[in-house]
Simulated assay, not measured.
Amino acid sequence: MVRIEPDIPLEVAALVGCGVTTGWGSASKVAAVRPGETVVVMGAGGVGMNAVQGAAAAGARHVVVVEPVAHKRDWARTYGATHSFATAEEATAAVNELTWGRMADKTIITVGDIQGEDIHAALGLTGKGGRAVVTGMGNYANVDVKLNLFELTLLQKDLQGAIFGGLSPRAAIPELLALYQHGQLKLDELVTNRYSLEEINKGYQDMRDGENIRG
């Protein structure tokens, strides 16, 4: 149980129960984004969009989104993304150019069903001494991950797991809601569709089809 201010709508407060806090904390706490850094967010759904918000709020110079759904790439711009691409391959060349070859300081993986190749792609986007944060969930039985061990050692890259953005619910939820009350965190805008209980199956299908950020 986490106490909140009584004037905050419950449908807004519900969003910080997981997705918002996880995304925000993945950028601000686990990735520890600092002003001026280049950050890549892979996956712009309910968690990834808030990793974008968190990275932008932390002062990232470039926030690059990798997302296959076109309108999610467009939405990401309104949450602080500076660049967006459909694939990691497209993003790699752009990040290389943006950073004069240094690549991203931080890469955050927030895809819905993470695969081993996503780790490989994230580390490829991450520069020397950078950190790749694994926030997305995969199948518990999936143990295959692709890594370039030569590169991992010589470029001193950091691969870090994250749960709930590394934050404490009792502290983070009131803090994030305070940011919302002061206009520093977008929550209302995350709700892109509303459904009646009878429409719950459509809501789930829209989520799978990428039709909403939060339904």
Rank of each mutant, 00 (worst) to 15 (best):
W100L: 13
S196T: 01
E97W: 06
R34C: 11
L190F: 03
D74L: 09
M103Q: 07
G138S: 12
W100A: 15
V69N: 10
P9M: 01
H120W: 15
T153M: 12
I109E: 14
F85Q: 09
A141L: 14
Q184T: 01
E90K: 05
E11F: 04
A32E: 07
D206R: 08
E211G: 15
V64H: 05
G183V: 07
T87W: 00
A93G: 15
Q205N: 11
A57E: 04
P35I: 11
R194H: 09
E211V: 14
V134T: 01
E89T: 14
S196W: 05
A76V: 04
S84T: 01
G19F: 08
A56W: 08
D209E: 15
V41S: 01
G45C: 01
L155D: 12
T87K: 07
I109H: 13
G130R: 05
Q184W: 01
A132L: 07
V40P: 00
R73E: 05
L187Q: 00
R102T: 12
S196F: 04
L177G: 08
M49W: 02
N148T: 07
T110N: 01
R214Y: 04
A132Y: 02
A121W: 02
E151Q: 14
G43E: 02
V65Q: 14
Q115P: 09
P35K: 02
K186T: 04
A141G: 14
T192P: 01
Q115K: 13
D113R: 15
A76N: 14
L123S: 06
G138T: 09
V111C: 06
G17D: 05
L123Q: 14
V111P: 15
G210P: 10
L177F: 03
P68W: 05
P6N: 12
